[in-house]
Design a protein around this nucleic acid. Structure first.
Lengths: 106, 106
DNA sequence: TGCACGCATGGTAATATGACCAAATAACAA
DNA sequence: TTGTTATTTGGTCATATTACCATGCGTGCA
């Protein structure tokens, strides 16, 4: 594995890692339905405002979302919509996994 | 978001998180080409044997891989091959991202 | 049986992550 | 200008992650 391959693996792992947190994955799924301002996300999620903001920053740095300031509000949206398409496979992994998860899919 | 939805999000995030580490992502990509024993993975990766084993355990617990002991060796393989299909989208995210990453895709 | 090999597990230490509070900043309205 | 709202940033602390070393365990060979 050369340096470039290693950098590529790290970059890809970083994207997956960004999505690998329940809060951030939830955010990405919300944004899949269309852009949201931070306040709209906060409205539906019980956590400190600063926590939400920091998670969004991580998603932004990973390249998953982009933000746009309009007036007093900052709107976030998915940068690459295909992120959504990952879910069926992830769900298949869960479905293929132990009994403990089977009920999640009903 | 009810309890079941929350559990589903957490389960999905856990799978993504398992893949969100360079070493584990590399392993998954290796296994995409076919099963490998731990020794074969170790051969191509510069890390302590125990480190490799622990990463494989994490992938196994996430449901990404399964293992099978044959003789003295343990073989790992992808449990759900579609994991591979995620990569084009992840690469698209990287491609859509800052200049710093563009050279990775050449 | 005894030993070497392949792998997993336990322990430990350094570093990273994530949650909250408090404070700073930007945009508007008054 | 002053206050208010929307969001980000800095600080701190608890917890999680990850890497290594040492050790344990199962398997097959001598």
């Amino acid at each position: 594995m050369n340096d470039k391959e290693k950098a590529m693996i790290e970059a890809k792992a970083n994207v997956l890692k960004a999505l690998g947190h329940p809060t951030r994955l939830w955010m990405a799924e919300q944004l899949a339905a269309g852009e949201r301002c931070v306040c709209e996300l906060a409205e539906n999620f019980d956590a400190d405002f600063s926590t939400i903001s920091k998670h969004l920053t991580i998603l932004k740095q990973a390249g998953v979302v982009i933000d746009e300031k309009r007036g007093k509000q900052v709107y976030y949206r998915l940068k690459v919509p295909c992120i959504l398409n990952l879910m069926p496979c992830i769900e298949a992994v869960i479905q293929a996994t132990a009994q403990t998860h089977i009920d999640l899919l009903k």
